[in-house]
């Protein structure tokens, strides 16, 4: 006997993603899911964004980390409310985990909530967290072959930040190739070249951020 179900897998995640989406819509909070390899600069980018935008945007951060809460501490030091989700070895955050901490960072009172996903370019992209947009960070020292190796992740990005451009004089990195490879799987992605360390190029990213925020409050 064969039963046809054609049922969505990860439907539980989807259920919670919908709840989160409804929450963010109701409170007019822009939610961004930030995905990258470990060390690409997610925390540094968020900390600088919080400092630079402190007069413009109230930001909250949900940190997904395998173990320690050092990232959440860095975010708090930058001046934003942060909560840590310990994934206990899991390679991605789930919508249910995000749902569980929305109250504790008072997400309803924020202009923007960032979710720093677990450092991994494969798994997080399969899990909708209910975010408005997805930000993928690729850093120069990782090499220029990442979009070809992880096309699924880049295909799902709304914005790609090419980070650590302050290192481009020291590391071989074919930017044209990266731009072409991202464009091949995702012609609509916005790509910004930045240095979260020096602040170079960050203004374009802030403009995008404010634009997105405005769109959801209109």
């Amino acid at each position: 006997m064969k039963l046809s179900l054609n049922q969505k897998i990860l439907s539980r995640n989807e259920e919670y993603a919908q709840k989160n989406r409804a929450f963010f819509a109701k409170h007019k909070v822009l939610c961004l899911n930030v995905i990258s390899s470990p060390g690409a600069g997610k925390t540094t980018t968020l900390a600088r964004t919080i400092r630079d935008m402190k007069d413009t945007l109230t930001i909250g951060v949900i940190e997904g980390d395998i173990k320690t809460d050092t990232d959440a501490q860095k975010i708090r030091a930058a001046g934003a409310e942060a909560v840590q989700i310990e994934t206990k070895g899991a390679c991605h955050l789930s919508a249910e985990q995000v749902h569980g901490v929305l109250k504790s960072i008072h997400a309803d009172t924020k202009d923007v909530v960032f979710i720093e996903n677990v450092g991994n370019l494969v798994c997080p992209s399969a899990f909708d967290l209910g975010e408005h947009k997805r930000v993928v960070i690729l850093s120069i020292p990782e090499g220029d072959d990442k979009p070809v190796k992880y096309p699924g992740t880049f295909a799902g990005a709304d914005v790609v930040l090419v980070n650590k451009i302050d290192l481009s004089d020291y590391i071989e990195f074919n930017l044209q190739r990266v731009l072409a490879d991202i464009c091949a799987v995702n012609p609509d992605a916005q790509i910004y070249q930045v240095s979260a360390a020096t602040g170079e190029g960050m203004d374009a990213w802030y403009d995008w951020l404010c634009q997105q925020r405005q769109q959801i409050t209109e």
Binding site: M1, K2, L3, S4, L5, N6, Q7, K8, I9, L10, A126, A155, P187
Partner: peptide, 15 residues
């Protein structure tokens, strides 16, 4: 220009 990518589906179970 892409058509939407297929979702993750549990299609059939055989008993």
């Amino acid at each position: 220009v892409f058509k939407p990518d297929a979702p993750l589906l549990l299609e059939t179970i055989e008993f």
